[in-house]
């Protein structure tokens, strides 16, 4: 009966294929761990002048720390630790992420935007303010990285103390459809933003134009990648910190940049 034979042949072929695929899959899986990713990082290589990359802890081969966490995993909550800073161990275990620093000369369009006071402004009017600027991109309903990035900016302000008003901080919403000026004001209040920290929105096209100019546009807000950008003054290059740098790292990059 030809139909039954072809059926059996089919089954055998299928089994064999399954085995091959499964093997390839598991092997490929191991290989994938070693392969550099084709995506990620700034794509405008023409503008990129890569300097001094920091070690990134997302690098799987990097040691997670210089000690074995297992050794003191229960110290923290036994009260036996004599540390002044009760979070010292937490911080140590977390200081693994790092970030990647690069410099760029972005060509920025002077597109119209809207401030969180609801008033019209423009990108260059906000940036060319006679002060150093720091820029990031967030949206208020983002659950994962924006609260952290915004928390980092808040922490940067408090670490700068009285110097916080020497730097203009700008958070551009990448969800202008939802992030109306009123919602941005609420968000700013939540994070106790100082007067020099401004949240901007605008129409969809303009907000995309700003993201593209800074090479942070990733198609839609759910593909959001964290980056912090800073510049000493108008006409000078931008320092880009890819990844989520913590507040101390941003403050130290900022101090190095402005020489204070």
């Amino acid at each position: 009966m030809p139909s039954s034979r072809s059926c059996r042949q089919f089954s055998i072929a299928r089994l064999a294929a399954a085995a091959v695929i499964a093997y390839a899959w598991l092997v490929g899986f191991a290989v994938a761990m070693e392969e550099p990713s084709p995506s990620g990082g700034p794509s405008s290589a023409d503008q990129l002048q890569h300097i001094q990359p920091q070690p990134t802890a997302s690098d799987a081969t990097a040691p997670p720390g210089d000690h074995d966490h297992g050794e003191h995993q229960h110290q923290e909550h036994s009260g036996a630790s004599g540390d002044d800073d009760p979070h010292a161990h937490h911080k140590a275990t977390m200081h693994q992420q790092g970030y990647e620093r690069s410099e760029h000369a972005y060509r920025l369009p002077d597109v119209a935007l809207v401030g969180m006071d609801g008033k019209a402004t423009s990108l260059l009017a906000e940036l060319n303010c006679g002060k150093p600027v720091m820029v990031n991109f967030v949206f208020t309903t983002c659950t994962t990285i924006c609260p952290v990035m915004t928390g980092v900016f808040a922490q940067v302000q408090s670490q700068l103390g009285p110097q916080r008003d020497d730097v203009r901080m700008i958070s551009v919403s990448i969800d202008p459809e939802y992030d109306t000026p009123e919602r941005l004001r609420q968000y700013a209040t939540l994070f106790k933003a100082g007067p020099e920290w401004r949240f901007l929105t605008g129409n969809l096209d303009n907000v995309i134009a700003v993201q593209k100019a800074f090479d942070v546009y990733r198609g839609n807000k759910m593909s959001h990648q964290p980056a912090t950008l800073m510049r000493r003054s108008d006409g000078e290059p931008w320092v880009r910190l890819n990844g989520i740098a913590n507040a101390a790292e941003i403050v130290s990059e900022y101090r190095a940049l402005v020489g204070r």
């Binding site: 994938a32 761990m33 392969e35 990713s37 995506s39 990082g41 997302s58 989520i244």
Partner: peptide, 10 residues
Amino acid sequence: GSMGPRHMAM
């Protein structure tokens, strides 16, 4: 966790 670009696919 926050993963580096290399591990996005992963």
